[in-house]
Design a binder for these strands. Structure first.
Lengths: 322, 322
DNA sequence: CCGGCTTGAGAATACGTATTCTTACAAAAC
DNA sequence: GTTTTGTAAGAATACGTATTCTCAAGCCGG
């Protein structure tokens, strides 16, 4: 690949002059400019971003550290982040932690090695001092997206509020006992629970971990075998809800007559399912846009000290499953 | 961020000595090694990958240029590519062309600017000389994944064969007229068509472009309004099939009784849909692995000249929709 | 006791670019 | 006609690292 020095030799000028031409510096002889540009074009010159950034102007690279891109929600998030970054001239280096804390660490180190100008992360570890420490070591701005992290810029959804809406909705649809599928320390669970209690619902609230299909089916079956009012099932994401719908069908439970089901993320498939899935819609494009905007702002004006939180609100998209 | 020279100053040695210590060169005094390592650790030293690669050893970056990561199939592909690359010590820079040829061009230029060691692409443009030219300009190995490109290393699926299997299957299930949804120049369509003709099926074969929902619905309706034998519908990907299933349901057509539906890619949701979707399964992990393996091989031994094609075969996963 | 070999470590250099410094020359001002 | 100002473009340097070259000291065999 041709370099400035080589162009300089070919056109009988000095390398700095070539640099000036290619960077649009006006103080250069038109004839020389013409020669240099022609030569550069002929040899398909592309500036070396590495050498450029070595000089100190930044790499125009953003690190993006996701948990699992094969989840449609994160895939969409990645896509929107890439768009938002590109709009501002940044490219992204992408990693999947796969919910593995050790990988997350390693990948952060790699991002540091490539001197990315900033990092967007969907964090997994929760120890309160962990992330601020990471940010300190990183030496570049770090923004958390999707989750709120104390001491870090964060762009996230108000999960409690969203889950409260789900609670309200399922109560209105006549459900009398409630099942959350996901982690019991998840904000979605806490919000759901609180939403039910706030409305004085005198009801049973259960939390069930997301398992592989057959085990989930067994557990769901024993839950439903116990006689009781109509259950309202809240799955912590659409993929989980999809599986639940399938299992309920195999168990002969009709939705929404015998049970209400609500998902989370409102991925594109939700509206096409049978029955179409009621789901909490996250403003994923806005989230990506705001997170990138915040990150780039930090990169370009590093002085402001205080961490900012941007809490977005979700809307429940009601469909056939509830 | 601390540099080798700074460590050198702090430990009263020269910068090359620090370089030797950090690169594990054995010919260095144990006491100095100890001091240097301690200092590096204390200041969280991370080598500057940019400076390193400027010296000529390559960036250990692979460019990945996809069409649309929000499609589950490509998301999974991206994930597997990332895994395979990481296994070999490479990181990836990711771009979405969004099926836009101009963007594809621009992104290839950016990858060149970052001096990636190689590029994996899901190509969109088809002009026969286009890609070989690109590869020439790129100056680094270029491997096409998912599609076969003349004159380029390619890892792809035998679409004709896969689509032939679909044809056979739908014929066996009693379908008497056939509808392909996608581009009529797509290998899937050609293979489907050929598969039907090969079996002497004396039948109507239609091709319909993938449109937005309401338009697709109108076109499907007028297709189905014409009396005839049971239709076999082959959608060019699972997302499309998902939409078709929904539309058929709205039109009151039951699947698989009144129509057979087959998708492509066998994304994770296929098995959970109602009815569960029959789909062509691509060996996506193998495809990613082989493509990365081929690319890395090219990077590390650039001498071999001839382009290699690896054709993988698909398997039809039969479920409820056909 | 001297010449050759080994070894540890600093000096010099290269990678590709951008910037600052410097020089040479021309045009303008006196 | 001399000084000043302005300008075009080359020289030098810096960024962080790896490598090659160089040098000094220590060791061995003779």
């Amino acid at each position: 690949m041709i370099t400035m020095s080589e162009i300089a030799k070919l056109t009988h000028v000095s390398q700095p002059t070539v640099s000036r031409v290619l960077n649009g510096n006006p103080r250069v002889d038109p004839e020389i400019r013409r020669r240099v540009l022609a030569c550069a074009k002929e040899h398909h010159y592309q500036f070396n971003a590495l050498a450029k950034s070595l000089h100190g102007r930044g790499t125009m690279l953003l690190g993006v550290l996701l948990t699992d891109i094969s989840n449609s929600f994160f895939a969409e998030l990645a896509k929107q982040i890439e768009l938002a970054a590109r709009k501002r001239g940044y490219s992204i280096i992408l990693f999947n932690s796969g919910y593995d804390a050790e990988k997350e660490q390693r990948y952060l180190d790699i991002l540091r090695q490539y001197r990315v100008d900033g990092v967007l992360v969907v964090p997994i570890l929760q120890g309160s001092s962990y992330w601020p420490e990471c940010a300190g070591r990183l030496d570049v701005p770090l923004v958390s997206v999707t989750r709120r992290v104390e001491g870090l810029d964060s762009v996230y959804l108000n999960h409690e509020d969203a889950s409260g809406q789900v609670a309200k909705h399922l109560l209105e649809r006549g459900c009398g006992r409630f099942l959350f599928i996901g982690r019991n320390m998840d904000m979605k669970y806490l919000g759901f629970r609180q939403g039910l209690l706030d409305r004085g619902a005198n009801c049973r609230i259960t939390c069930m971990e997301e398992r592989e299909d057959c085990r989930l089916k067994r557990e769901l079956q024993s839950y439903l075998d116990i006689p009781g009012p109509k259950p309202g099932i809240f799955a912590n994401n659409d993929v989980c809800a999809l599986r639940v719908l399938r299992i309920l069908r195999e168990l002969g439970i009709s939705v929404p007559e015998d049970a209400g089901v609500v998902g989370f993320d409102n991925t594109y498939m939700a509206g096409y399912l049978n029955p179409a899935l009621t789901s909490v819609s996250q403003p994923v494009d806005r989230m990506a846009e705001e997170a990138v905007a915040r990150l780039v702002e930090r990169i370009e004006c590093p002085e402001q000290a205080v961490a900012l939180n941007l809490e977005l609100s979700a809307s429940l998209v009601v469909r056939e499953s509830s």
